[in-house]
C-alpha cells in the first residue's frame, strides 16, 4: 500500500477548509484519470463527462469525511465506481446505444483522441488499431471484471488498494482479475493478427 503523499495531504486539508483554489488544483490533478476510467467503464464520451462532473461533486460533498487512512486516489476511484453504477442502474436499457457508440469509435475517433509518441505512420496505425481492439474487448467484459482490469492496469492500483476501493477480500480481487485477463485473451483471439 502506498503511503499518502504529504503534498497531497496538505492540498486535501485546504479542500476541507473550503478553499476553491485547492479544489481547482485537486480536480486538475485527477480529472483526466477520472475521465479515462469513466469512459472505459461507460463506453460513452457523453456519459464519461457527466460521470466525471458528478464524481467531483461527490468529492466536494464528502471531502470533510475523507479520513486519509486510504490513499485519495483509492477513495476517488471508489466514488467514480459508485457514480457509474448509480447511473447504470438508472439507464440499464440504454446499453445497446453505448455499444453502438463503441463500434463507431473503433473506426476513427479513438485514434484521434489517443496521446502517443507518434512513431512511424504505419506503426502508429497498427498500435492504434491494437489499442482500439483492446479497448473494445475491455468494454465487453462484465462490469466488475472491467472495473478491476482498469483499476489495476490503467490506474495502477495495487491488489490491496482495489480490495479496499471495492470492499472485497484481496483473494477475490486476485482470482477475479485472473479470470478477467483470461477472458480478455479469449475475446481477442478473433483479432490475433494484431498481437
Amino acid at each position: 500500500m502506498r503511503l499518502p503523499d504529504p503534498a497531497e495531504q496538505k492540498l486535501i486539508a485546504r479542500c476541507k477548509a473550503g478553499e476553491r483554489s485547492a479544489f481547482d488544483e485537486l480536480i486538475r490533478q485527477y480529472e483526466k484519470r477520472v475521465y479515462n476510467l469513466a469512459y472505459r467503464l461507460s463506453a460513452s464520451y457523453d456519459d464519461a463527462g457527466d460521470i466525471t462532473v458528478d464524481t467531483f461533486m461527490r468529492v466536494y460533498q464528502a471531502i470533510g469525511l475523507f479520513r486519509g487512512d486510504a490513499n485519495f486516489s483509492t477513495w476517488l476511484f471508489r466514488i467514480v465506481t459508485n457514480v457509474y453504477l448509480d447511473r447504470r442502474k438508472k439507464t440499464r436499457n440504454k446499453v445497446t446505444v453505448s455499444l453502438e457508440e463503441v463500434i463507431e469509435l473503433e473506426e476513427s475517433t479513438v485514434s484521434r483522441q489517443v496521446e502517443s509518441d507518434t512513431p512511424g505512420p504505419e506503426e502508429e496505425a497498427e498500435t492504434n488499431e491494437r489499442n482500439s481492439a483492446l479497448d473494445s474487448a475491455i468494454m465487453t467484459l462484465p462490469d466488475y471484471q472491467r472495473l478491476m482490469v482498469l483499476l489495476y492496469h490503467t490506474e495502477g492500483l495495487s491488489y490491496e488498494e482495489i480490495a479496499e476501493a471495492l470492499s472485497l477480500p484481496i483473494g477475490t480481487v486476485k482470482s477475479r482479475l485472473n479470470r478477467a485477463r483470461l477472458l480478455l485473451r479469449e475475446r481477442l483471439q478473433a483479432r490475433r493478427e494484431l498481437f
Binding site: 483526466k32 464520451y45 462532473v53 502517443s116 489499442n131 480478455l184
Partner: peptide, 20 residues
Amino acid sequence: LWSMLDELPELSAPAGLHGD
C-alpha cells in the same frame, strides 16, 4: 496482453471538462 494493458494510452479529456 498484460504489457499491452499496462501501456494502454490515456485519452485526452474534452477541452471544456474542467470548466464544467
